[in-house]
Computed example of a mutant assay.
Amino acid sequence: MDPLKTVITSFIDMSDEQYAIIHPIMQKMEVKKDTNLLQQGQVCKHVYFVESGFFRMFYVDYKGNEINARFAKPNDFMVDFVSFITKTPSQYHWRAMEDSTIIALDYEEIEKAYELYPKWQKFGRLIAEWSYIQIMQREEMLHFQTPEERYETLLKTQPYLFNLVSQNQLSSYIGIKPESLSRLRKRILGK
């Protein structure tokens, strides 16, 4: 079974015929390492599915620092929902961290599928809910956990990040300075 169908059917039962509806609107793309798929100021017009590779979503703060907001690995969906739904410029960049293969689904085509097929509309709602939960879990981690708890949460929930991102990128994701992350790592490893 193809990876996209496997992920979709993990959210909702869907027949081969229902799944085949999106074949004509799927656009497979190769994205080279260090290429921005979306840049701040552009409108996000696609939902992306990562077949292979790795991406980070970040913004540049008022001091010029890159702050990581999300990461996407194989079998993840990527979208800036605010930009996608409101058709307003994104505040984020999506950058390939390695050579990647993605499937792009266009906004207008997705909307047509939603109108014509209730299963796709339900899937769209479920994936939006899932995405919201992911965003809120990170927000709650930043608001309600100590830096050490955040680090330990990542070790449990996203251990792959420790091999795929730099210390600077990891520290910005958990909301601490790189030197604080270094001290934190030493303290945790010393336990």
Rank of each mutant, 00 (worst) to 15 (best):
M1L: 07
M1S: 10
P3D: 13
P3Y: 11
L4E: 02
L4K: 11
T6S: 11
T9D: 12
S10P: 09
S10I: 08
Q18G: 10
Y19D: 10
I21P: 02
I21G: 09
H23M: 07
M26E: 10
K28A: 15
M29G: 12
N36E: 05
L37V: 14
Q39L: 11
S52E: 14
R56K: 15
M57E: 11
F58V: 08
V60S: 06
V60L: 06
V60C: 10
D61V: 02
D61L: 05
K63Q: 11
I67N: 08
F71A: 04
A72S: 06
D76C: 06
F77P: 01
S83P: 00
T86V: 09
K87D: 05
P89A: 04
H93C: 00
S100L: 12
S100Y: 04
L105R: 08
Y107D: 00
E109G: 11
I110L: 15
E111F: 04
E111G: 00
K112D: 05
Y117F: 06
K119D: 11
K122F: 07
F123D: 01
I127T: 09
A128R: 03
A128L: 14
W130L: 12
Y132M: 15
Y132T: 15
Q134S: 09
R138C: 06
T146R: 11
T146N: 13
P159I: 07
P159L: 05
Y160N: 06
F162I: 03
F162N: 02
N163W: 01
S166L: 13
N168E: 11
L170S: 07
S171F: 03
Y173H: 04
K191H: 12
